[in-house]
């Protein structure tokens, strides 16, 4: 069987080599070809939307509808992972770390606790900074949400399982996850009440290079940040919960 599979694989490779070589030869010259869409947005976004980070302008304004789809893909993937993992363990949670039979629970080393306690709050703060400055400097809800989730993981390493479970309330995360996507959808629907198009940026754009510039982008950014932060935290939480032995009331 493995041999047949490799023969099939190499047949596929041989079939693909010629088209890929043709595509590589026909690709535009690297770094030296016109970028009409990018140039148009780089020209328009600072002027029309008062936004200095044009990547965020693409994500939340020019291609906001596309980002709404990505947002729901994210929610679907997280929901699927949570259903698969939590479904087998039940809903109830006990704040006890998991143990394997015959293996003790070694305490955390002081160095790990110290570094995590030092770095955790700073990482969280940095995450919020990245989220808030979405329209000004490199940043946004997607990046910032992931940074915040990593800060929460550092809290786990600093405080241990029990402390972490006291901080991380699953219902809050569930609300944050769904609420973030809902906020994005509402930000799209709200302009329609005023007779504008879906996701049309009707709020005041603010001052160029100001943290609150961008109008409606700020709300969409907040929704994305909530959903990404809660989504990654939920996934981390569920995978960490997997190490816990199911309790008798967990069925």
């Amino acid at each position: 069987m493995p041999r047949l599979r490799m023969v099939l694989f190499w047949c596929g490779v041989l079939l693909l080599i010629a088209p890929i070589a043709a595509v590589v030869c026909d690709m535009p010259r690297f770094g030296d070809h016109p970028l009409p869409y990018g140039d148009a947005i780089n020209h328009d976004a600072p002027r029309d939307r008062h936004v200095s980070n044009t990547v965020s302008a693409v994500n939340f304004d020019y291609r906001g509808f596309d980002t709404l789809g990505e947002e729901f893909m994210l929610v679907c993937a997280v929901t699927g992972a949570v259903v698969l993992l939590r479904g087998s363990r039940g809903e109830s949670v006990t704040a006890e770390p998991g143990t394997l039979p015959g293996r003790g629970l070694p305490g955390r080393s002081d160095a790990a606790v110290l570094i995590s306690r030092l770095m955790g709050p700073f990482t969280l703060l940095f995450g919020f900074y990245v989220v808030l400055h979405a329209t000004v400097t490199p940043g946004g809800g997607f990046q910032g949400g992931v940074v915040i989730a990593s800060g929460l993981l550092l809290l786990f390493m600093g405080e241990g399982y029990r402390g972490w479970r006291r901080i991380m309330r699953t219902p809050w995360l569930d609300v944050c996850e769904g609420g973030g996507a809902l906020l994005f959808a509402l930000a799209g629907l709200a302009p329609m009440l005023t007779g504008s198009a879906f996701l049309q940026n009707i709020l005041p754009y603010g001052k160029f290079r100001d943290m609150l510039s961008g109008g409606l982008m700020q709300i969409e950014n907040a929704g994305v940040a909530c959903a990404v932060m809660a989504g990654f935290s939920l996934v981390l939480l569920e995978f960490l919960e997997e190490t816990r032995e199911p309790e008798h009331d967990d069925t």
């Binding site: 893909m73 990046q143 992931v146």
Partner: peptide
Amino acid sequence: AVDPVVQALVLTDIVVGAT
């Protein structure tokens, strides 16, 4: 400046890909 459109695509792609 480089093209922001593809950067935005990659950005969302990485996050969704991770989940």
